[in-house]
Structures are given as structure tokens and as C-alpha cells.
Deep mutational scan, measured.
Amino acid sequence: QVLVIRIKIPNSGAVDWTVHSGPQLLFRDVLDVIGQVLPEATTTAFEYEDEDGDRITVRSDEEMKAMLSYYYSTVMEQQVNGQLIEPLQIFPRAC
């Protein structure tokens, strides 16, 4: 299952990153890619938005798994409803 992660860049749009092994993705892998997209920032975590629009911070593989399972459940709903699949949007955080 292909996963598209949209890395939101403060004040300048976003970069889409296509991942072919989504469920095996590790927290460190995401930080590495964010580091390539935002080389001047030191990113130690990132956030995503849940169904209520609240930002949830991801700082570990466990939290990463929770984010992915949340995302895959929303994708299934979108597929069932015949909607366009939205990329998983993440917001890098420099701490």
C-alpha cells in the first residue's frame, strides 16, 4: 500500500513524499526526510491533525504507529465513500 506523506513547510507550501512501505515506516525515517526538506531546521518531532483538527505530536515509533493506523482508517472511509484519498499531512516541529 502506497502512502503519500505531505510535509508542510512553514510559510512556503508543502512537499509530497511517496512511501512504498508505509506500515513499516519508522519515526527516524520520517525525521531523515524532513531533514532533507528543511536542512536548516533541527526537527525533533512532527505533528498531524486528528479528526477533530487537534494537533497530535509524534516523537517515537509507538506514536508513529498510532498516527499510521489513524490515517489508514480514514483512508478506508474515504475509499468506501468514493472520495479522493488525501495525503497524510505532517507538520515538522523544531524543538
Rank of each mutant, 00 (worst) to 15 (best):
E86R: 09
E51G: 14
V33F: 11
S69R: 12
V37I: 13
D52H: 13
S69Q: 13
E86P: 11
G22F: 12
I5F: 12
A94N: 15
L26R: 15
E86L: 07
I5M: 09
V4C: 15
G35I: 07
A66M: 13
D61G: 01
V75P: 02
E51Q: 14
W17E: 00
E51W: 08
P87V: 04
A94K: 06
V58M: 02
E63M: 02
P23D: 14
L84T: 13
I5S: 02
Y71K: 00
S73G: 12
D61M: 02
L68I: 10
A41F: 08
S60R: 03
D32F: 01
Q83P: 09
A14Y: 14
G13Q: 05
M67I: 01
Y48P: 00
T43C: 11
M67Q: 02
P23K: 07
L84E: 15
E86Y: 04
M64W: 04
K65C: 05
T18N: 06
D16W: 00
A66D: 13
W17H: 04
W17D: 00
C95T: 10
R28I: 08
F46A: 00
E62C: 13
D29R: 03
N11C: 04
P92E: 00
D52T: 09
D32T: 09
N11Q: 11
R93G: 09
V58G: 01
I5E: 01
P92G: 00
E47V: 04
D52I: 11
D32I: 02
E62L: 09
L26Q: 14
Q79N: 12
P39L: 00
V75W: 09
L25H: 01
C95Q: 14
S73P: 01
L3P: 04
V58I: 05
V15A: 02
F91M: 04
L3H: 05
P92Y: 00
P23S: 11
Q89R: 08
I56T: 06
W17V: 07
L88F: 03
M67C: 07
A94P: 08
Q78F: 07
C95H: 15
D52M: 13
G22R: 08
T44S: 08
R28V: 07
R55Y: 06
K65N: 09
S21N: 15
F46T: 05
S60M: 00
A66P: 14
K65G: 09
K8T: 10
F27R: 02
V30E: 08
E47A: 05
I56D: 01
V58R: 01
S21L: 07
I90C: 04
R55E: 00
T42N: 14
I56W: 04
Y48I: 05
L26T: 15
S12G: 15
E86T: 09
V80F: 09
V75F: 08
D16A: 01
T18M: 05
T42F: 13
K8E: 13
I85T: 06
A66E: 15
A66F: 08
Q89M: 13
Q24Y: 05
M76N: 14
T18E: 08
D52V: 11
E77T: 13
L3Y: 09
V75C: 11
M76K: 14
T57Y: 05
P39S: 06
A41T: 11
N11H: 05
V4D: 05
Y72C: 06
L68W: 06
V15L: 08
Q36Y: 03
D16Y: 00
Y48E: 02
Q36E: 15
L3N: 05
S60L: 00
T74R: 11
I9Q: 05
E63H: 05
G53A: 03
G35N: 15
V33D: 00
D54Y: 10
R28L: 05
P92A: 02
V75K: 13
K65W: 06
I9C: 14
E40R: 06
Y71S: 01
F91K: 02
T42G: 09
C95A: 15
F91C: 06
E86N: 07
R28P: 01
Q79D: 11
R59F: 10
N81S: 08
I34V: 05
D16G: 01
S69T: 12
R93V: 15
K8C: 12
E63Y: 01
A14P: 13
F46M: 06
I9Y: 06
Y70T: 07
Y70W: 10
L25A: 05
A66R: 10
L38D: 07
D61E: 05
D32C: 06
I85R: 11
A66K: 10
Y71N: 00
L25D: 00
P39M: 02
H20E: 09
L68Y: 03
V80N: 13
V4E: 08
I5Y: 03
L88Y: 04
K8P: 04
L25Q: 01
G82I: 03
V37A: 07
I5C: 02
G22K: 13
Q1K: 15
L88R: 02
E63V: 01
A14G: 08
S60D: 12
V30F: 11
I7E: 05
S60G: 12
T42V: 12
V2A: 10
D32A: 08
L38I: 08
D52G: 12
N11D: 12
L25F: 02
D61W: 03
M67R: 01
L68M: 12
H20M: 10
T74H: 11
F27M: 05
L31Q: 09
R28H: 13
H20A: 11
E63T: 05
A94T: 09
E49R: 04
N81M: 13
E51T: 10
G82M: 07
C95F: 10
T44Q: 15
E77L: 09
R6S: 03
Q89W: 09
S69M: 08
S69I: 08
E47Q: 03
G53R: 04
F91P: 04
I56M: 05
L68V: 06
L68P: 01
M67G: 01
D54K: 12
L38M: 15
P92M: 00
I85V: 15
Q83W: 06
D50Q: 11
R6T: 02
M76R: 14
M76S: 12
P23F: 09
W17F: 09
T44W: 07
T43N: 06
T42Y: 07
G82A: 07
A45T: 10
E77H: 12
L31S: 05
D29F: 04
Q83Y: 08
G82W: 04
G53S: 03
R55P: 03
T42W: 05
V30L: 08
Q24L: 03
V4P: 06
Q24M: 06
L38A: 09
C95R: 13
L88I: 02
R55H: 07
L84K: 15
P10G: 06
E40F: 09
L31D: 03
K8G: 04
K8S: 07
D16I: 05
V2H: 08
D61Q: 07
A41E: 10
Q89A: 08
T43H: 14
L26V: 11
G35S: 10
S60P: 00
V15C: 06
R6A: 01
V4W: 07
Q24C: 06
Q36V: 08
I90E: 00
R59V: 03
A14Q: 09
I7Q: 01
A94Q: 12
L84P: 15
M64F: 10
Q83I: 07
A14V: 13
Q78C: 07
M67T: 01
N81Y: 15
V80T: 13
Y48R: 00
T57I: 12
I34A: 00
G53K: 05
V33K: 15
G22H: 06
T44L: 11
K8N: 11
D16N: 07
F27P: 00
I34R: 00
I7F: 04
Q78M: 12
Q79S: 13
R93Y: 05
T57L: 13
S60K: 05
L68G: 02
E62I: 08
L31Y: 02
Y48F: 00
L68E: 02
A41C: 05
N81H: 15
G35L: 08
R55C: 03
E47H: 02
L38P: 00
A14N: 14
E51P: 11
V15K: 06
P92C: 02
S12R: 14
K65M: 05
A45F: 15
F27D: 01
A66G: 10
V2G: 13
L3A: 01
S73Q: 10
Y48D: 02
